[in-house]
């Protein structure tokens, strides 16, 4: 494959972008387009080998705006369609664009199984904690008490945490970034693209029309440094604008300690590649009011992707039995011959 140097503009479709002005999706689109040249460079990939598959929802319009191959499918089913595509076409880099409704309500099943199988697709779940396209009903990630047209007295449903679900689904790459944090998002997109197997990225994305400010308490520029925990593999989990606090475990539960009261050498070191997902799950379950919100890669482990295992079986079968020949095959086994009758 010849390597070609791409620029951001090579990934910008002619299509007019039609999200609401101020929508967080613009920032995600822009970061994806920006990081694509480097992804192509790293993976020695050409633009025509990149596909964006989406379901239904505001975020699922994304493929129209990428100057790559795209498929805007049906509600919740993008991971399954992407699975079929990736299995048949391992040469492609397949992305799935989904949202909190598409991926965690109507399509949860496919997301779980795609991650469990470790299909080599890159899943970006845009979480705005609201249904935007259908004009503002609560979503499976909406906080309890969210008042919408379908929950005028407040939602009474416990929200699901996307990363906890991904971890419970045995995902091999799990990460989170905020749409407003260009640097972290780009780093994660690049790592997701290069991961061998399913990569699951939750992108916190503000819906300024129906759920404005959903993440302000920790993602607004003014508080982000202080309220975010940037996960770094092999490093203690220190956070704060002044990097003066850290997370540690006490009797199995997380707590915040001050560095001036607690020696750094005794802090818990973050390990994204731990075989056991316990630490990652602890982080994904942190209460976002009481604790800083972890950003970055929660988990990155190695496990053979589904497509590779399937193709290995094909290779094994061919090695063992020889490449199949249809006419030999149908004429082998329990067959018999009928010959033309002699005489009358």
């Amino acid at each position: 494959m010849t390597s070609q140097k791409y620029e951001r503009k090579d990934f910008v479709a002619k299509e007019e972008v039609r999200w609401c002005p101020g929508c967080g999706d613009y920032a995600v689109l822009s970061q994806v387009q920006r990081v694509m040249p480097e992804i192509c460079d790293r993976l020695q990939l050409r633009r025509e080998n990149i596909v964006f598959v989406s379901g239904i929802g505001c975020s699922s319009r994304f493929p129209y705006y990428m100057n790559t191959y795209g498929f805007h499918t049906i509600h919740g089913r993008a991971p399954a369609i992407a699975t079929g595509l990736q299995l048949c076409r391992p040469d492609l880099l397949v992305w799935v664009i989904t949202g909190d409704g598409d991926g965690l309500s109507i399509g949860t099943n496919h997301l779980v199984h795609c991650l469990r199988r470790n299909v080599n697709v890159k899943i970006l779940l845009f979480n705005n904690r609201i249904y935007g396209l259908t004009k503002g009903q609560f979503s499976p990630t909406s906080e309890k008490g969210t008042r919408t047209k379908s929950s005028p007295m407040g939602s009474i449903e416990q929200p699901i945490k996307p990363l906890s679900m991904a971890l419970a689904s045995e995902a091999t790459f799990v990460a989170r970034a905020s749409a407003t944090d260009a640097k972290t998002l780009q780093d994660i997109l690049l790592r997701a693209a290069c991961h061998r197997g399913s990569a699951f990225v939750e992108i916190l994305q503000n819906c300024n029309v129906f759920n404005d400010g959903a993440f302000d308490s920790f993602a607004a520029t003014s508080v982000r440094q202080d309220r975010s925990l940037y996960l770094q593999h092999g490093r203690p989990m220190i956070f704060g604008a002044n990097r003066d606090r850290a997370i540690r475990l006490r009797a199995g539960f997380p707590e915040i300690v001050r560095l001036d009261e607690f020696p750094e050498k005794d802090l818990l070191v973050f390990n994204e590649s731990a075989a056991h997902p316990g630490l990652a799950y602890m982080l994904s379950e942190l209460d976002e009011q009481a604790f800083p919100v972890p950003m970055g890669v929660f988990r990155c482990v190695t496990r053979s992707p589904f497509g590779e295992l399937l193709d290995e079986q094909i290779e094994t079968a061919v090695a063992k039995r020889g490449a199949g020949n249809l006419f030999d095959y149908i004429n082998s086994g329990d067959t018999w011959r009928v010959t033309a009758p002699q005489g009358s």
Partner: peptide, 10 residues
């Protein structure tokens, strides 16, 4: 859905 994905992939 997987069958459609395969068809999309040729």
């Amino acid at each position: 859905a997987m069958a459609i994905g395969a068809a999309y992939g040729g």
